[in-house]
Design a protein around this nucleic acid. Structure first.
Lengths: 207, 207
DNA sequence: ATCTTGCTGTACCTCGGGTGCAGTTATGCC
DNA sequence: GGCATAACTGCACCCGAGGTACAGCAAGAT
């Protein structure tokens, strides 16, 4: 019957997740209807419920996907930073520079963060999804905290500093700058905040 | 018939807004039902639609209320800071200290920001509400930017610095720290971020 | 006495999230 | 070739939430 791509079986679930992430970041989970997702990927409602038993299962799958992507992106950028510089401080500063550049080059106008999007609607979700959301933040805290401990051994900061707060500052700034960027429709806010954070880190540790 | 408070007429609208703000910050606008609000304040659905023609009108009223409160709180804290110190830099630093203390003393465990809550669901709202949301961010930018310009005249920073980004950093950090605080159920994150921001501002301008 | 404000009550419509289940078709495996 | 399985479609139906449209009523203000 000349069907170009019937029985595409393998990627329908993935395409649902992609459509869902776009929609959820754009307008929130509650405002994202199953109907619009199935129109997007060209299946029926029954098809959706074949892949996800309910909307909560969709949310869980989105979070899992997001956690993995987030980890990969951070890993990629900061290992490249370290490859370009042996020293833990300067490798980190290069990593932040690369991060800012990557953010500035994002094709989307006003990107968003799934964790933040879920955060203000978290009563909609099961406890395990809220736990995953917390974990996505803790990943950042642990990553940056470990690096600062390493740096502080070599470059002890002049003044006592709350290193945990400094680590959390990275996630706070990114989440907050995404909000500002969306509200003001200004894609430059996020990379500039990252560069400012970099200035702060350098000022703290550099002798 | 011994009605304790029938015909309370005057404050029903206000009580609706209070209930709505609590619910919206807790679980998002879309997940906040009119039914729960009317149960909260003890009126009927018709009563709700007497006060607000639809949910969008409720959102608009919430934003207006929020803008006024936000302005008053910031005004109060930073004018007190300036009363305690003549110098624009040190008055500002005192203000930030007061701000951090006020945030640490908040009774609610995980407060939230209406602007952030609306931000990730903004497709639900009319354009004018999105504009008000942007305005609530610009209030912060203008306030802090003006102060930094003032400070920079007296204490020119050693290195070139993006003062607009430094101003936006305040709102970014607060919005982001609220998200982290909610996700991790840790009320100390927000005040600690504000204190860190204060350290950064001092490091930039102090000779 | 009547007007206005601040509601209540009833009835009804639509959309979105589900549930339940029977049927269909391509593919892979024996 | 036969058969199981994966990946759906189609249909029928339920519920809750956002509205719409009015008619009515009761307490104060004038």
């Amino acid at each position: 019957m000349l069907e170009t791509a019937d029985r595409r079986r393998t990627d329908t679930r993935e395409r649902l997740l992609e459509a869902a992430e776009r929609a959820v970041v754009a307008k929130g989970f509650a405002a994202t209807s199953i109907d619009e997702l199935i129109v997007d990927v060209g299946i029926t409602k029954s098809g959706f419920f074949y892949h996800f038993k309910d909307k909560n299962a969709l949310a869980r799958a989105l979070m899992l996907r997001y956690l993995a992507q987030d980890r990969d992106v951070l890993d990629g950028i900061f290992t490249r930073g370290d490859e370009l510089h042996d020293d833990p401080l300067h490798g980190f500063l290069v990593g932040l520079k690369l991060f800012a550049e990557a953010l500035a080059d994002l094709p989307e106008h006003h990107p968003g963060c799934l964790a933040a999007s879920f955060c203000y609607q978290d009563q909609l979700f099961d406890q395990d999804i809220r736990d995953m959301n917390a974990e996505s933040i803790l990943v950042w805290r642990r990553r940056f905290r470990a690096r600062f401990d390493l740096i502080a051994e070599i470059y002890p900061p002049k003044e006592k500093i709350d290193l945990e707060a400094l680590a959390d500052m990275a996630a706070s700034l990114v989440e907050g700058a995404l909000i500002l960027g969306r509200a003001l429709k200004d894609a430059t806010i996020l990379p500039r905040q990252v560069l400012l954070y970099r200035d702060f880190v350098r000022a703290i540790f550099q002798p």
